[in-house]
Amino acid sequence: MFENLLTWLDSPQTLQAIVVTGSLLLFGIGFYGLLAYTRIIKILISLSIMESALFVFFLGLASDPHKTAPILGDLFKNFEKMNDPVPQAAILTAIVISLATMSLGISFAIEYYKRTGKNDIAQMDALGEKR
């Protein structure tokens, strides 16, 4: 019984369903965190969770488990049985960009805290219409 469960889990149809539902669930959790929490670091964490969910979604659907990693080694000489390198290059770029945004966000938060002692979006009231 356990045997055919494993093979069922590996069929492309179910694998795709697992990846889509799982990463969308993670995306939803990040989105919930973004809306529900107002502390700056919590918001940065939720943004990063949403991004990881997108990376898993993209790579999960763009890669084929029966193919190998796109790296030529002494064992693999031809590219037919290799995965598509373009999504991997795109996600590599996106991860570095998310590091840049995160480190910038943190330094904003530090400087804002040092100046006003607040680290919460709800307490920010310097902008907006004033009579």
């Binding site: 670091i41 790579l59 890669s63 990693a69 995965n83 991997q88 991860i95 590091l99």
Partner: peptide
């Protein structure tokens, strides 16, 4: 998902240095 490059990047940058920065 057979993406060792992305796994290394995520390990070093995604959860490594980002957690340190936070």
């Amino acid at each position: 998902f057979n993406a060792p490059d992305v796994a290394l990047t995520e390990a070093v940058i995604g959860s490594g240095i980002t957690a340190v920065v936070l």
